[in-house]
Structure formats: structure tokens, C-alpha cells
């Protein structure tokens, strides 16, 4: 039953043993690799808390079966977004704007925004709101999150 699978995570090739290749990527990252940045929010692709990048695109890892992730595909989690102690500009902007309450949504907000800003150097506030429309924040940190993304724009 158990099988080995190879993933490329945060620039390193990692081999894990799983019982079931249908297991979502989120659980492989959290349980097998101890990467706690992506969080479980719904398991239904409805909230964004579990967002990671796969080949640069934001992906909801809670519904992505491991079997659909090829060994060569580049998975990046929020842990891999910063370079050592140097934060990614989006992370830095979230600190500078203090754009966090409980922070449970923040992984998703940062990963979604980082991917969005990579292709949009100068988004309007409305663009940012649209780009994050699929991410839920129950604490109501939206205003600050938008400000943080705006601040990071052009640097990310």
C-alpha cells in the first residue's frame, strides 16, 4: 500500500512515504514535511488558507491530490518565500502594515498576493480586492491586507 513519492518543495527534492496518492498536498506538506505555514481552513477550495505556489501559480493545496503533483513541479510554501532571514516584500509589507489579526488566513493572503504581484507591478486597489476575492478572512483584516499588498506592489 505505502508508496514513495518525490516532491520538489522550496527548491529541494523531498521523498516521502504515503499510504494513498490521493492524499492532498496540504497534508503531505504539514504532516510529512513539517511545513506548517499552509493551514487547513476548509478542505473545499473555498477559503484559501492552504494556498501554496505550484510552478509560480497559487494553488489550493487542500484539494490537490499528491498524485497530480509531478516530481519536477516546483512547490513553494510560505516558508520558502523568504530567503533565509530576508522576508519576501509581501511578507515585509504585512509586518509594516500590521496586517494580521489571528493570522489564520494570512498564509493564503500572502501567497495569493505574491503570485498576483509577480504579474502585476502596479495594481489598483480594485485590482487587489479582486485578486483576493476568493480568500476569506473572518477577523476582518481586509483593509490592512489591501494596504499591505499595495505597499508591496512594484517590489515583489
Amino acid at each position: 500500500m505505502a508508496e514513495r513519492r518525490t516532491l520538489n518543495v522550496n527548491g529541494r527534492s523531498r521523498t516521502i512515504t504515503v499510504d494513498d496518492p490521493d492524499m492532498p498536498l496540504l497534508l503531505a506538506l504539514r504532516e510529512n514535511l513539517g511545513l506548517n505555514g499552509p493551514l487547513f481552513g476548509c478542505g473545499l477550495a473555498q477559503c484559501g488558507a492552504c494556498t501554496v505556489h505550484v510552478d509560480g501559480k497559487p494553488v489550493r493545496s487542500c484539494v490537490l491530490p499528491l498524485s497530480k503533483v509531478a516530481p519536477a513541479q516546483k512547490v513553494v510554501t510560505i516558508e520558502g518565500l523568504s530567503q533565509g532571514s530576508r522576508l519576501h516584500p509581501v511578507q515585509r509589507a504585512f509586518v509594516e502594515e500590521q496586517a494580521v489579526q489571528c493570522g489564520y488566513c494570512i498564509n493564503g493572503m500572502i501567497m495569493q498576493s505574491a503570485a498576483f504581484l509577480a504579474g502585476n507591478k502596479n495594481p489598483s486597489e480594485a485590482d487587489i480586492r479582486k485578486a483576493l476575492a476568493g480568500n476569506i478572512c473572518r477577523c476582518g483584516t481586509h483593509t490592512r491586507i489591501v494596504r499591505a499588498v499595495k505597499r508591496a506592489a512594484g517590489q515583489a
Partner: peptide, 11 residues
């Protein structure tokens, strides 16, 4: 806030 740096790093 003291908790925010770790929250934005995912740790």
C-alpha cells in the same frame, strides 16, 4: 505586535 513576524513567516 509581537506575534506578527512569525505569523507572516508561516511559523
Amino acid at each position: 505586535r509581537v506575534d506578527i513576524p512569525d505569523k507572516v513567516r508561516g511559523r
